[in-house]
Design a protein around this nucleic acid. Sequence first.
DNA 1: CGCAATGCTTTATAAAGTCAAGCGGTGTGA
DNA 2: TCACACCGCTTGACTTTATAAAGCATTGCG
Lengths: 97, 97
Amino acid sequence: MSTEHTGFCPVYRAIGVLQEKWVLHIVRSLLDGEKGFNELARAVGGCNSATLTQRLEHLEALQIISKRTEDSHGKLARSVYSLTPAGRQLQSVIDAI
Amino acid sequence: MSTEHTGFCPVYRAIGVLQEKWVLHIVRSLLDGEKGFNELARAVGGCNSATLTQRLEHLEALQIISKRTEDSHGKLARSVYSLTPAGRQLQSVIDAI
DNA sequence: CGCAATGCTTTATAAAGTCAAGCGGTGTGA
DNA sequence: TCACACCGCTTGACTTTATAAAGCATTGCG
C-alpha cells in the first residue's frame, strides 16, 4: 500500500497491461497456437481490426508476442503472431482464471 | 475452437470482467483487507470516484465483492467493501501475475 | 475473370473513462 | 461555535478509446 502503485510495483504495471481491452483474449488465443491477423480477430471474437492492430503493436513492443512475416512461396505475405517466452508465462494467469 | 467465445465459455466471460479498467486493481487492493470507498480509491491509485462507483456496483452484482454499511455508533455511515469467497478465488490470478 | 480471403489503414461516431466540483453528513480543532 | 477536513457518493462537461464500415493492394481458387 505504502510503496506506491505510482512507483514501480511490477504487479501494478502488469495489471495495467492485462486490463487493456482484448489483451487477455489475445493471449489466451495465442496460447493454443500462433495465428494470423484475421484468424486471431475471429478467435478473439468481436474485436475490430483497428483495435487489434494497436493491441498487437503494444504487446509486441512489450515483447509478449512476436510477429513474423511468412513468405512461403514468393510473394504471399502472411503475418503470424505468436507468444514469446515472456508471453507464455501468462499461461498461469489464464489457468488461474 | 470455433464456436466458443460467443457462447458460454466461462473463461471468456471472466476475462471480460477482469479486463474492465481498474477491476484487477480493486481486487488486488481488497485482497489485503477490506476498505472504505475513498480508502480504496487511494489504494487503487488514480481511479476517479465515478468509475469506481460503477465498477464496485458491477463487481457487487457479480458477487465478487460485498458492501457493508457500518454504523458503528448511531449515524456514522462508513461503507466497507470486501471480497466474497468467489472474489477471493481471484487471489490465484493476482499471484500468477 | 470474378469473388473470397489475406493484412491492414482510414474516418466518423459511439461508448467509456476522467476531471472537477459539489452535496449532505460527521468529527476535530481553534 | 464555527470553519474545515474527511466520508461516500453524484453530476455534468470534456477527453480518450474503441467501434463499425469501408477500402486498398495482393493472392488464390474456380
